[in-house]
Write a protein that binds this DNA or RNA. Sequence first.
DNA 1: AGAAATCCCATGATTTCCCATAAAGTGGGG
DNA 2: CCCCACTTTATGGGAAATCATGGGATTTCT
Lengths: 148, 148
Amino acid sequence: MKQLFGTHEHRLDAKGRVSVPAAFRNAWKDVPDMTIVLRPSLIAGCVEGWPMPAYAKYEQELAAMAETDPNRQGWATKIYSDAVELELDGQGRIAIPDHLAAEAGLGEVVCFLGRGSHFHIWAPDGAKVFLEATRALAPKLTFGAPPA
Amino acid sequence: MKQLFGTHEHRLDAKGRVSVPAAFRNAWKDVPDMTIVLRPSLIAGCVEGWPMPAYAKYEQELAAMAETDPNRQGWATKIYSDAVELELDGQGRIAIPDHLAAEAGLGEVVCFLGRGSHFHIWAPDGAKVFLEATRALAPKLTFGAPPA
DNA sequence: AGAAATCCCATGATTTCCCATAAAGTGGGG
DNA sequence: CCCCACTTTATGGGAAATCATGGGATTTCT
């Protein structure tokens, strides 16, 4: 499974559908019966989307926990109960469920961020703030001409 | 994977395409399904290009960070969200996305600098300044050769 | 039957593919 | 050493495929 790159803005139509960026779809084009898991992000303010094969990693972590571990129920809630599994339609779109869209404050335009194994869906403003805040976490060296 | 050498000027066409220097393409001609990752350089002012196999170094760095480490989000933004994965067309060209070209101030002529594992894409002036500034950072030994 | 979800087709814009050409580099023979 | 044929490179442009998006028709559920 290839990694997910880039930021892509797309438009939610009247039926709540959005095109998943072609760049993402190409990353899993050889996986048969591909599905996407959507759930509220642990980072507030966005929806997280996982290609099913990558989501298996969470399932393994859960399986590794003892049946009696009290954290287990918390994990199971986040991984399963709060999540939805979706298929893409014939045009490569998904329909974002209302409760997820509302929780993330999504409007007509949404912004997909590739995060390697998975992706984020933000309202455009939220994406901008998030990108700038996270970029600032590492220093930047400057040589030569400043950007125009 | 061979190292990338040299300085090469090429021309962006009306569709935003540039030929990747043949010297670079030859370095990875035996890698199947080769792709290039472009992203804003951590050094301001240029676009950085990475042959996919070499980019794995960043992916490993990210994987080594704890899930809870705040720097992890910073890296994921720089490595994935700010980056694009591209293929070469049949003529060995890549299409540089507008936002990357704009951020690096690229005009019609761009300058490729081999950097071993990866390469830089600069506007010609930026490349000149960068090369001179960085040359000055390396010590120079003098033996025998007459001063100019 | 009515509401909602799903399937399918349509369309304009963009991107990719493929062919063409000119310049430059390569090698061999005389 | 020079010239010629051939290959590789860089670049341009038109045709074809893909993408994002909208909307109608059909099905499903209650």
